[in-house]
């Protein structure tokens, strides 16, 4: 029963992903590995679409994965699975808000959870780098180190890093601007 599994997988994601939408990414990669519902490449595209459309990115990614796996009902089930733990936990915490905020064990646990979240997201990012910038298949065939790197992609990455981190005027622009520009670059220079 695919809907039940979808719900369960996303319930797990909603329960353990701490630190917002991007924190669900490592769970989605793990889901791709264990279920085979979608590929790493598809997931990278889903992240891009989720960043460029309205709505919280975590919810968008869940909906997209659900849709890819089992159509519109899948999208519904995955999204409900993702938000169910949130709703339960928040409804409980809302009654004991002050005690929760000042509890030293909660604070200590989150001191450990925040760096965990960063490490997991960075590792998931590495998987996207592997698909987007490296030619692992070509390298396996030729064995030439220069073939491992996709030069066009590296160049684009350098330009994007400069625009999103270095230049003050473009730094504050919405991610959708960079996503659209990258799509145009992809088509123009036939990536």
């Amino acid at each position: 029963m695919i809907y039940l599994r979808l719900f369960f997988e996303f319930f797990k994601t909603g329960l353990f992903a701490v630190g917002g939408g991007m924190a669900t990414l490592p769970f989605l990669y793990s889901m791709s590995d264990t279920t085979g519902w979608f590929s790493h490449g598809q997931l990278a595209d889903m992240v891009a679409v989720s960043e460029s459309t309205p709505g919280p990115i975590g919810v968008n990614m869940a909906t997209y994965v659900g849709f890819t796996t089992a159509g519109v009902p899948g999208a519904l089930v995955a999204t409900l699975g993702l938000v169910t733990p949130s709703v339960i936990i928040i409804l409980i915490i809302a009654r004991v808000l002050q005690a929760f905020r000042s509890n030293k064990y909660v604070d200590a646990a989150f001191y450990g959870l925040r760096p965990c979240s960063v490490g997991l997201i960075a590792a998931a990012g590495l998987l996207v780098v592997k698909i987007a910038v490296l030619n692992t298949e070509l390298y396996a065939q030729t064995g030439v180190l220069a073939d491992l790197f996709n030069l066009k992609a590296l160049l684009l990455a350098a330009v994007l890093l400069l625009l999103t981190r270095g230049i003050r005027q473009t730094k504050k622009l919405h991610p959708i601007v960079f996503i659209l520009a990258s799509a145009a670059a992809g088509v123009l220079f036939s990536f």
Binding site: G41, A44, D45, V47, A48, E51, G125, V128, V129, I131, A132, V133, A153, L156, A157, L160, L161, T164, F178, I179, A181, S182, A183, A184, A185, G186, V187, F189, F191
Partner: peptide, 8 residues
């Protein structure tokens, strides 16, 4: 192209 942007 978009995937490169997602990395960044």
């Amino acid at each position: 192209g978009i995937r490169v942007c997602v990395c960044v």
